[in-house]
Amino acid sequence: MKKCRILGLFGNFDDAFAAIGDFKNKKVDGITVDDVTFLSPIEHPDIDDVLGPRPSVIPKVTLCGAAFGITFGFLFLASAQSNFLIQPQGGKPVVPLPSNIVLTYEMMILFSVLFTVVAFLITTRLFRKRKSLYSEKVGIDQVAIEFEVDEKYIDPIKGVFKDNHAVEVREEVQS
């Protein structure tokens, strides 16, 4: 059994959504809507309704980043301040809260942003070799549905694509 990839290009969102609807309605046995990878030039506002809920961990990572920024920021500042060989504050607290609040705030934002970006890069699976099944048309104005399935599903999937007016169908057998 070989893993195959198949990609169907559609001229508009409606056709592609219709095709996804077909997969949803179990037109092809063994293929569900969760196997669908949907490629588009923009994010269609209704995409969540079509594909069903697909979670994202990014907000959680951001929260971790914010918490880390606050704790690390404050501890870093406080330890640095109490570590001065010579205390420069004549008569004022060694760990001054007002200025530390300001700096901790900045650190919170910095680490939240950094964590978010790192999470984005990991969860979107960027930095990987691009799969060969890619159409430049997706960057322009066409949308595509991609599957990575066993060889036996290829033909029925192709059939669904054709039924829904796919502009082009590409497939690739993985070696």
Binding site: V36, T37, F38, L39, S40, P41, I42, E43, I47, L51, R54, S56, I58, P59, A119, F120, T123, T124, R125, L126, F127, R128, K129, R130, K131, Y134, V138, G139, E146
Partner: peptide, 14 residues
């Protein structure tokens, strides 16, 4: 390596 799949767009928007 952006290719515009739904996972990328979803996380991108977030």
């Amino acid at each position: 390596g952006w290719r515009g799949d739904d996972r990328q767009w979803r996380n991108f928007r977030r």
